[in-house]
């Protein structure tokens, strides 16, 4: 069963890659501009860190690492599971899930994998470069960093499914879903050192952007088994919640009876 799903996933990826390569200028443009986009943001933060040197104990290298982790994690989502974003929300809102529901594949998995964005490659490159240049990666913590990276990517996927399921419960909510994801990404992109007390608790356990911006740096500087378990549990927990929320929402789904062939 899992092998079949993987095979199906690879077929979808191949199709997405072919379609992205069809417009070569756009394909390479997306990668280059995405790298430049991340570079511009980094220059801005570098200038700020130059002015203040340290912000609540964080040096620029900490920010670089955090930024790299968030960007690289987002790239996995963008490259492989972009369908879980606005695409899913719009399918639900317009009652166009039917082509996915009548197939023998897992509908959620199918929708998530059905869209891929080449700009993710630009993010992956710049994210990995940022983490490497931060100087915080050592052979000893590489395993933990990979785990945190995968957990962050899973969290992006989970939050995207969670937000995209809102149209099951509220009308005309696809824009809201997109904006919520944007807020989530924005908050994750700010140095986690600025939050404390209740805000920190909320950002770790309720709106878990802090799992990417607060905990990884704490984990790098003061490693502990408890912290990595917390990061993994929150990611897996939110993934479970996202799947539950999608299938609960599916019970309320109203088709538009607008059956048509889908692209992938």
């Amino acid at each position: 069963m899992a092998v079949k799903q993987l095979d199906f996933w690879f077929s979808l990826l191949k199709l997405a890659a072919k379609s992205a390569f069809a417009l070569k200028t756009a394909f390479f443009g997306r990668i280059v501009f995405m790298c430049l986009n991340n570079l511009i943001l980094l220059v801005g933060w570098w200038a700020v860190f130059q002015s203040f040197n340290h912000i609540n104990g964080w040096a620029f290298s900490d920010f670089m690492f955090m930024s790299g982790l968030v960007i690289a994690a987002l790239s996995l989502f963008t490259l492989f599971f972009r369908g879980a974003g606005i695409h899913l929300a719009r399918l639900i809102e317009f009652g166009e899930l039917d082509p996915y529901l009548i197939q023998p594949r897992n509908p959620l998995f199918h929708i998530c994998c059905s869209v891929s964005d080449a700009s993710g490659l630009g993010d992956l490159i710049s994210g990995c470069l940022l983490m490497s240049f931060s100087g915080l990666i050592t052979p000893g913590n590489l395993g933990v960093i990979i785990l945190m990276f995968l957990a962050a990517a899973l969290l992006f996927l989970s939050m995207s499914i969670l937000f995209s399921s809102i149209p099951f419960y509220a009308r005309d909510a696809s824009d809201l879903s997109e904006r919520l994801f944007f807020i989530f990404f924005n908050i994750a992109g700010y140095p986690g050192c600025i939050y404390s007390g209740l805000a920190k608790f909320i950002l770790i356990f309720i709106f878990p952007a802090g799992v990417m911006s607060i905990l990884p740096i704490e984990m790098i500087h003061t490693p502990s088994f408890g912290k990595i378990i917390t990061i993994l549990s929150i990611s897996v927990g939110f993934f479970g919640l996202a799947i539950f929320s999608f299938y609960q929402g599916l019970k309320r789904y109203e088709s538009s009876n607008h059956i048509r062939s889908k692209r992938s």
């Binding site: 200028t25 443009g29 997306r30 501009f33 995405m34 430049l36 943001l41 801005g44």
Partner: peptide
């Protein structure tokens, strides 16, 4: 000229934030 304007949009948006001093 570019076939896809989205990447340029992202870049301009970030330039707006940083060079426009919207954050700092």
């Amino acid at each position: 000229f570019l076939q896809d304007s989205l990447p340029l949009f992202w870049m301009i948006q970030k330039a707006e934030y940083i060079l426009g001093g919207l954050f700092f």
